[in-house]
Design a protein around this nucleic acid. Sequence first.
RNA 1: GCUGAGGUAGCCUAGCCCGGAAAGGCGCCAGCCUUGAAAGCUGGUGGCGGUUCGCCACGGGAGUUCAAAUCUCCCCCUCAGCGCCA
Length: 430
Amino acid sequence: MIDLDLVRKDPAQVEANLARRHDPKLLERFAEARARDAEWRAGRVEADRLRRRRNELSRAIGQARAEGGDTEGLASEAREALAQFDEVEARETRLGAERDRLVRSLPNLLDPSVPYGKDDTENVVVATWGERITDAGSRKSHVEVLEALGMVEFDRARRASGAGFYYLTGPMVLLDLALQRFALDLLIERGFTPVIPPFMLRREPYEGVTDLADFENVMYKVEGDDLYLIATSEHPLAALYMGEILDEARLPIRLAGISMNFRREIGGHGVDQKGIFRVHQFEKIEQAVFCRPEDSPAIHEELRANAEEVFRRLEVPYRVVNVCTGDIGTVAAKKYDVEAWFPRQQAYREVVSCSNCTDYQARRLGIRLGKAGRPGKTVPHTLNSTAVATSRALAVIVEQYQRPDGSVEVPTVLRPYLGGRSSIARAAGA
RNA sequence: GCUGAGGUAGCCUAGCCCGGAAAGGCGCCAGCCUUGAAAGCUGGUGGCGGUUCGCCACGGGAGUUCAAAUCUCCCCCUCAGCGCCA
């Protein structure tokens, strides 16, 4: 959430920033939040005055009783003073709760370098890498290739679990695992600590790391428990230090999350309807960092460089976009997407999302910075980025590395993880 | 799932039975002392703003009361033992 202190001290700055998001409702909500806060503050003065009176009388009764005096007169006076108290206090509570709800519903403040734009068509390309394959006609879709290899089961998965699931089988599983291990090793090399987090979270931490709209749209709720299946390991990793004071000397903390990820939301149309590009369940190696506020822009670039390195070493052409104001979402202050080139589709498709969330998640989660175990006033920044999401990476590799005979070449960098194997082909007689 | 013990400030703890302004220690900060440091001594050290002061804060919520960390009810979480279990 946005710092309430900043809302009070420099509302013009907050308002100008929110205005960049093209959403007039946001400015209305912001104005409403400020109005509720002003009313709440005024109401508090009155409530505090009443509470003070009550406390004084109450102490006087205690003292009179201790001295053996009569307390009935004081007590009736106190009862009288309390008559109007409930109403004032209820009003104060209601205003404060409304103010908090409104402030919490506001998105993060955007970094000045985020380009202005209405939707994903106005994202700005900031880098491109690799030689694209431009003859789509020579290519089959990843679905066709995987089915011809006999290493994926879509129809049976639908029967068992519904649309949006698949069984991956045979050597393709080894390629999936190799991708994860390769990305993980790269991160470990760069100072990340691998973490297998819980794959379910309680509601409270979940509200800290994501926004409510996402919450309703993408989360799977576990029946009978206050638990939700994680949509990305970013969420349990961000919640790792919920309510704690992080010692500045320990920062930055670089974590490499390994998890299965579960998402209900599926925009079921066009080319994504079939296949493994967009599914309810996928594995991902994720970068997550806690750092001092002044370090987050540089670390954001570092995470992006790591994500790019994954695709360079896989020799998959890609571009990087700076996600514009109309497409960036609630939590990130700045976001890069890495988009890999899918030769069959002749399109760049998102394979990595790399965000600087600044203090937005950390404040909601109650994480503070401190020295020697003592809390300070500042809140750390959190960042996250995909290193590799296996279903999407697998899809692009299959489209790019397929051969005319139906086999798939193994990217050089993955071969050590497959015992030196250089291609995956349909088993004889299968 | 059952039984029991717990949840108090950055940390540790007292207070709870028997309602009356959150005690103490550690750590941290500042001052004194010192060549310097440690020790020692003194003071400070939760949040809010309306800042000579006040209000709020004892896991969360409701109730009783002039007054709740304390009594009553509901809920959450943690730990231990038992049960179950890949």
